[in-house]
Simulated scan of single mutants.
Amino acid sequence: MRAILLALAVIAAAAPELGWAQSKSGTKAPANETRYFTALDGLMDGNADVILKETRQGKTVTAATLDVCYPVAKNSDRKDRFVVNLTVNGQTLTGATQSNGAKEPVTVKLTRKPTGDNFEFRGQIVIGKTVTEVASTDNADVSEKEFQESQSNDDGITAQPKDFTDVSPEAVSVRLKLDAVPDFLKSLKGEHVEVSLSSLIVSCDALRAGEQTISMTVDPERAGALIAKARATTGVVTAGWTAGTVEMDRTIRFAAADWRDGDKINRDKLANAISDVLAKTYAAKPTSAAWNPVTGKLKLTLKRPSQLMPSLDLTDVIELTGLVSPDKPGGADALILWISSPTTTTVDESSAAKLILSDESSGDEESDARDDSGTIEELAKAFKAKRWDADNSVWK
């Protein structure tokens, strides 16, 4: 009995230490956390787009990946990119890979140093024979959630718009896999389609996503067919309408019946009617009205005697652009008409020696706000049309 009591006493005396040992061995290691740096100041003269991803356990970096997108040459719009998994050795990050496009060898050696709440990176990045010194201070990191929110990229494409109030009837965009872009663009050669030059630039976002958006302008009457053709093309992710020329505050909507010739819009009749209204609004004489066969836009020109200095017999040349389309894809009952703000240029068109004029106030052309105030309202009256109420999102 005494032996049993003695054993119990020994166990009781050891219990606190056993409990401490269990508590110590049961302590959970810090959870893994992913943090991002979305810039390294000054890298490649500030032209590099950088994402450094770190996996941390507490304050210790356990893994890192560096993603750098950069111009292939100084002042070039063409980009190349490399992604390298870095070996972590204390505060040193090293790795080697090759660039995705030019297949140049890449080596990275960086030293990472905490500086308060921010971090400093120093070292070298070598791409081919080009050595870039890294000396970047005051770099702040962001969480996984913050990073993902900053990466959301809406290309604005609406595949099936209910109408043309949020997207423009002539503006078409197609998002494709990168390797499908050249063949798609070649297929547009000889077509009545205007391709945005800026959309040919492969951005860093496109390189990372593996997809590029090509923006085009096309006659609204052919836009639906172009989109259908694009959707049937290999490598196309999505195609549809996007924002473009049409501004709702300069757009009217009216019945289509009087302005159709069979299943086609009677453009000559429309151009004459629009010109008549503008002639009265601007107290000017219509001199030309031409429809662009590629974009479907109407260019209108009017002239009137300039009142700037009547004795000089100068002429105001007023130019506007218009666009007519069904009010929705496949629509037949109603049309919308958008008219741009006018630009007025004053010239000397006399038959004798001419006065050469330059307008230094705002370039060669300027918006004639004085004359424009009633244009859309007068067009609405002439066409018995409705205007867009932006506050309530309705035609009225």
Rank of each mutant, 00 (worst) to 15 (best):
L312M: 14
S275T: 08
E221C: 08
K264V: 11
K303A: 01
D316F: 15
L302S: 04
W291A: 09
P326N: 03
I214M: 09
A232Q: 13
T234F: 09
E221K: 14
T295C: 03
D219S: 13
A228Q: 00
E319K: 11
T238N: 06
A206E: 04
D258V: 12
D276H: 13
D249L: 14
A223N: 09
D249H: 11
R267D: 15
R208Q: 07
E247D: 06
A225M: 11
N266P: 01
A243M: 11
F254P: 00
S311W: 04
P305I: 11
L270Q: 10
I274C: 04
D327K: 11
L312F: 15
G240N: 02
A243Q: 15
S325P: 04
D258Y: 08
D219N: 15
T233Y: 10
R222P: 04
V246I: 00
A223G: 12
I214F: 14
L300R: 01
A223C: 08
R260A: 14
D261I: 05
I227G: 06
I318L: 08
T287H: 13
M309W: 13
P305V: 01
V237W: 05
D219V: 06
P326Q: 02
W241Q: 01
T315C: 07
G322N: 06
T315E: 04
A271Y: 03
N292S: 10
A257E: 15
K299M: 10
A289W: 06
T295G: 02
N272E: 01
T217N: 07
L302F: 09
S306Y: 08
N272M: 06
D313Y: 10
A223E: 04
I252R: 05
I318M: 03
W291E: 14
S215C: 06
A284N: 10
T217S: 12
W241V: 06
V218T: 01
E319V: 02
N292P: 02
D263N: 13
L323I: 07
K280F: 03
L312H: 14
R222Q: 00
G224K: 04
S311Y: 01
D205L: 11
A290C: 09
S306C: 00
R231Q: 12
L300S: 07
A206Q: 01
A255F: 00
R222K: 08
T233M: 04
P305L: 07
T287G: 10
V237K: 04
A290S: 14
T301G: 12
R260N: 13
L270P: 00
